[in-house]
Amino acid sequence: FDIYVVTADYLPLGAEQDAITLREGQYVEVLDAAHPLRWLVRTKPTKSSPSRQGWVSPAYLDRRL
C-alpha cells in the first residue's frame, strides 16, 4: 500500500459515515483511492492506539516516497 502523511488535522463532519479523525504528521496507508473525494486509509498502530481504518479527504494527504 502507498504511504501518505497527513498535512493538517482532519476532523470529519458528523454526517460522514466511516470517517476517522487524523492528526497532522500522522502516517497512513491508502487502501482505496478509486473515489476522487474520499479515500479509504488505515492508520499505523502506536503503543497507545491500535490501527484504525476509515474514509478521509485526499486533500489532507501528501504522498511519501
Rank of each mutant, 00 (worst) to 15 (best):
F1Y: 14
F1L: 09
F1H: 11
F1C: 13
F1G: 10
D2L: 14
D2W: 14
D2M: 13
D2R: 10
I3W: 15
I3V: 12
I3E: 08
I3R: 04
I3N: 04
I3S: 05
Y4C: 05
Y4D: 00
Y4V: 03
Y4G: 01
V5E: 05
V5H: 04
V6Y: 01
V6Q: 00
V6G: 00
V6R: 00
V6I: 05
V6S: 02
T7M: 09
T7S: 07
T7F: 04
T7A: 06
T7N: 11
T7Q: 05
A8D: 05
A8Y: 07
A8V: 08
A8W: 05
A8H: 12
A8T: 09
A8G: 07
D9E: 06
D9V: 04
D9Q: 05
Y10D: 02
Y10K: 03
Y10P: 02
Y10R: 03
Y10N: 04
Y10F: 10
Y10L: 05
Y10A: 03
L11H: 14
L11P: 14
L11A: 11
P12K: 06
P12I: 09
P12D: 06
P12F: 07
P12Y: 06
P12L: 08
L13W: 10
L13A: 13
L13P: 12
L13T: 15
L13G: 13
L13Y: 10
L13M: 13
L13K: 11
G14T: 12
G14M: 12
G14H: 13
G14R: 11
G14F: 12
A15Y: 13
A15Q: 13
A15M: 13
A15K: 08
A15H: 15
E16K: 06
E16R: 05
E16C: 09
E16G: 11
Q17L: 13
Q17P: 14
Q17C: 10
Q17R: 11
Q17M: 12
D18K: 05
D18M: 07
D18P: 06
D18H: 08
A19S: 12
A19F: 12
A19T: 10
A19Q: 10
A19K: 07
I20H: 03
I20W: 07
I20M: 08
I20K: 02
I20N: 02
T21D: 10
T21I: 13
T21S: 13
T21H: 13
L22M: 04
L22K: 00
R23K: 13
R23C: 11
R23E: 10
R23I: 10
E24L: 12
E24V: 15
E24T: 13
E24C: 13
E24H: 10
E24N: 07
G25S: 02
G25P: 00
G25R: 02
Q26F: 03
Q26T: 12
Q26V: 06
Q26R: 03
Y27D: 04
V28I: 05
V28P: 00
V28E: 00
V28F: 02
V28D: 00
E29C: 10
E29T: 08
E29A: 06
E29S: 05
E29I: 13
E29F: 13
V30M: 02
V30N: 00
V30P: 00
L31S: 01
L31Y: 02
L31A: 01
L31C: 03
L31M: 07
D32F: 08
D32S: 08
D32N: 11
D32C: 10
D32V: 07
D32G: 02
D32Y: 09
A33E: 05
A33R: 14
A33T: 09
A33P: 06
A33Q: 12
A34D: 09
A34V: 09
A34W: 07
H35S: 15
H35F: 08
H35T: 09
H35Q: 09
H35I: 04
H35A: 06
P36N: 06
P36S: 08
P36I: 05
P36M: 06
P36E: 09
P36A: 08
L37Q: 10
L37G: 12
L37N: 13
L37M: 11
L37C: 11
R38P: 00
R38G: 03
R38S: 07
R38D: 01
R38F: 08
W39E: 00
W39P: 00
W39Y: 03
W39T: 00
W39H: 00
W39S: 00
L40E: 03
L40Y: 10
L40W: 10
V41P: 00
V41R: 01
V41S: 00
V41M: 01
R42W: 02
R42C: 04
R42H: 02
R42E: 03
R42T: 03
R42Q: 06
T43G: 01
T43S: 06
T43Q: 02
T43E: 03
K44L: 15
K44Q: 14
K44F: 15
K44W: 15
P45N: 06
P45F: 05
P45G: 13
P45Y: 06
T46Y: 08
T46W: 07
T46C: 09
T46Q: 07
K47P: 14
K47V: 12
K47S: 13
K47I: 11
K47H: 12
K47D: 15
K47Q: 12
S48Y: 13
S48P: 04
S48K: 09
S48V: 10
S48N: 14
S49R: 09
S49C: 13
S49N: 11
S49Q: 14
P50D: 08
P50I: 07
P50V: 08
P50A: 09
P50Y: 05
P50G: 07
S51V: 10
S51L: 06
R52K: 13
R52I: 15
R52H: 09
R52A: 11
R52Y: 11
R52W: 12
R52E: 12
R52P: 02
Q53I: 15
Q53S: 10
Q53N: 05
G54T: 05
G54E: 04
G54N: 02
G54D: 02
G54A: 05
W55A: 01
W55R: 03
W55M: 04
W55Y: 10
W55G: 01
W55L: 03
V56Y: 01
V56F: 03
V56W: 01
S57N: 15
S57T: 04
S57F: 04
S57L: 05
P58T: 05
P58K: 04
P58H: 03
P58Q: 03
P58A: 06
A59Q: 12
A59I: 12
A59D: 12
Y60A: 05
Y60P: 01
Y60R: 02
Y60G: 04
Y60T: 03
L61I: 04
L61K: 00
L61H: 01
L61F: 03
L61Y: 00
L61R: 01
L61Q: 00
D62M: 14
D62T: 15
D62Y: 09
D62L: 13
R63L: 15
R63P: 10
R63G: 09
R63Y: 13
R63T: 07
R63F: 15
R64N: 11
R64K: 12
R64I: 15
R64F: 15
L65D: 14
L65K: 10
L65V: 14
L65C: 12
L65I: 14
L65W: 14
